[in-house]
Computed example of a mutant assay.
Amino acid sequence: MPHTAHIRSHRKPRNRSASTIAMRAGVAGGVLSLAAAGASASANAAEPVTQTLELPTLTADLSAQVAQSADATQQAAANYQLQAERDAAAAKAAKQAKSDLAEAKKKAEARKKAAAEAARKAAAERASRSTVRTTLSTTAHAGSSTSTGSSTATGSAAAIVSFVKAQIGDTYISGGTGPNTWDCSGLVQAAFKQVGISLPRVSQDQSTAGTQVSLSNLQPGDILYWGSAGSAYHVAVYVGDGMFVGAQNPSTGVVEKPLSYDPPTGAVRVL
């Protein structure tokens, strides 16, 4: 064993100050921190970073504005729909009015034509009656037996003439058949019934009940008619001397009048 083995070392112990220890600790800490940071960075690099964006919360004023805007949009849509409905109704009304106007014009034109035709027929009828009136007036005043036939009633004709004259002054009533109220055909039918002759009830049929005769060759007891044969609207009895007796209308009743008062269209002879 060396001779110095049990000799204590004469080296002085190192005097380590607190600052030196602290510095070494800091360095060690810094190294550890860097290592930790590196490890953390590696871990973060391995996992994707997710960012969460937090939307701002609607305030009460903003909510009210949104609601008001929605109401305004809804009201505008309702207004557009209402206007569309009104426009459609107006278009329909205009179309109907146009159709009604066309129909009214068509009817007015038809009425105008009908009135013109009626006026033409009335004028022609007046002209015809005027001609007949002139002829009858001339023959009545002449009193010629050759132009107006016999003016003296005999036999059955006398009985018919006597009966109708007896009813002069009676009342005219449509549908009347006596004994004190008559219409035109009711009086004629009753007169011929006195001599056993049955006539049809109405003027249209009475105007074709016998033989057609000329108005210039009348005899007492002949049936006078107004209108066309088969569609006459009035009848009376010729009583001679250019006179007739008939139930004329509600205002006159049964009267005796000259042929010129209301010239008949034709005559038939039953006797």
Rank of each mutant, 00 (worst) to 15 (best):
N44L: 08
V31L: 14
T148D: 09
A114T: 08
F244M: 12
A142D: 11
P56H: 14
T59Q: 07
H3P: 06
I7V: 13
A78Y: 09
L199H: 00
A102W: 02
I223N: 04
W226G: 04
K193T: 00
S151I: 02
A114N: 08
A247H: 02
D183Y: 11
S144I: 05
G253Q: 03
Y238C: 04
S128K: 13
S174Y: 14
V164N: 00
T57F: 06
L34G: 08
R201V: 01
D100K: 09
A22C: 06
T50K: 11
T177I: 00
I7E: 15
V245I: 07
T265G: 06
W182I: 04
S69D: 05
Y238R: 06
T252M: 11
A229K: 09
A116F: 03
T52R: 11
A39D: 08
T152C: 04
K92E: 13
I21A: 15
A39C: 07
V270C: 03
A77F: 10
V195D: 04
K12D: 15
G149F: 09
E54S: 08
A229Y: 09
L82E: 12
A41N: 02
S198W: 06
S251H: 09
Q74L: 08
R8M: 10
S63T: 11
V66A: 14
H234D: 07
A127L: 07
I168W: 06
T135E: 13
G246A: 05
T152M: 07
A91M: 10
Q189M: 07
Q248V: 02
V255N: 09
A122C: 03
Q212W: 00
E47N: 10
K92L: 12
A236T: 03
L271V: 00
T139D: 14
G266Q: 07
L136P: 06
D87I: 04
A70I: 00
T152G: 09
I223Q: 07
T50R: 11
Q219L: 04
Y238Q: 07
T57D: 08
S42M: 00
Q206P: 03
G240H: 05
A190K: 00
V202F: 08
K257Y: 11
P263Q: 08
V213Y: 05
N15K: 14
P56D: 13
S207R: 01
S19P: 06
A191F: 01
M1R: 11
K105I: 03
E103A: 14
E117Q: 15
G26V: 10
V245F: 01
A119S: 14
A159H: 09
R8A: 15
D100C: 02
P263C: 08
S156R: 09
V49R: 12
W182E: 01
Q248N: 13
S151R: 15
E117F: 03
A89Q: 13
D100I: 04
W226V: 04
H234L: 04
S33D: 02
T57P: 00
A88Q: 14
Q212V: 01
V270D: 10
R11F: 12
W226Y: 15
T135W: 01
D205C: 02
